[in-house]
Design a protein around this nucleic acid. Structure first.
Lengths: 114, 114
DNA sequence: AAAAATACCCAAGCTTCTTATGTATATAAT
DNA sequence: ATTATATACATAAGAAGCTTGGGTATTTTT
């Protein structure tokens, strides 16, 4: 896992959204899913991911469940009810931010344009 | 100037892009332009803006020019040649990041869709 | 046998932001 | 007339969120 800047603040939203779609995922799986979806362009570092997961759990948005797979431990995360509510909030926050970014950076841009 | 999170890392790109379009701007003007373009949704704080401007100047991407307007001092910033080169680099970096974000967060999304 | 992949974790340090503060002039409101 | 808001710059402490670089352990590939 290495080299990509930016993200700063969107990692939580990414985690929550992936868990909304997948019911239950473990850390390593999340890094692989993101890598796959972005064709290797975004690589979530473990040093960023695990603290983020622990924080979301501490905030009551995620719960964990340990599973044993071939002598290896997997820690599955899933959304709590509060977590489910937070997904939409974080998503619309991020979408509106991206919209505003476009308005600043691309004068031609308006919603509903390619 | 207050209350908006996110941004984290995109401020430099915003500054450079605005200066590409406007030749010369002063700090306060930048905060007002962003506020105007986003209908008040993004407010650049001065505590974020001025250090960012100073850093870009120290990196040789911006130059300054002091002007006196009605007993008030204005510090105009404009792009250096290196600054002009950096705009496109920072822009494509950010655009590709936003594209990747969409791919993660919106499974339906693909380039050239509303 | 060695390397890479799978799977978790932590800590130091850096960057970037928020919040709070300070200085100073001009204009609008009470 | 005085106060508040707008204009215009700046700095500094602290928080948040990363990167980098460790560490542990098993399984699969080379």
């Amino acid at each position: 896992m290495s080299n990509n800047n930016l993200i700063k603040g969107s990692l939580q939203t990414i985690i929550l959204k992936l868990l909304e779609e997948n019911e239950k995922m473990y850390g390593y799986e999340i890094t692989q899913r993101v890598k796959e979806l972005t064709e290797g362009e975004i690589k979530i570092t473990e040093g960023a991911l695990y603290p983020a997961l622990h924080k979301l759990e501490a905030e009551g948005l995620l719960t964990t469940e340990i599973q044993q797979v071939d002598n290896r431990v997997r820690k599955y995360y899933s959304l709590t009810k509060n977590g489910q509510k937070e997904v939409s909030a974080k998503m619309s926050e991020l979408q509106s931010f991206v919209g505003n970014l476009q308005r600043i950076l691309d004068p031609e841009w308006r919603p509903g344009l390619a």
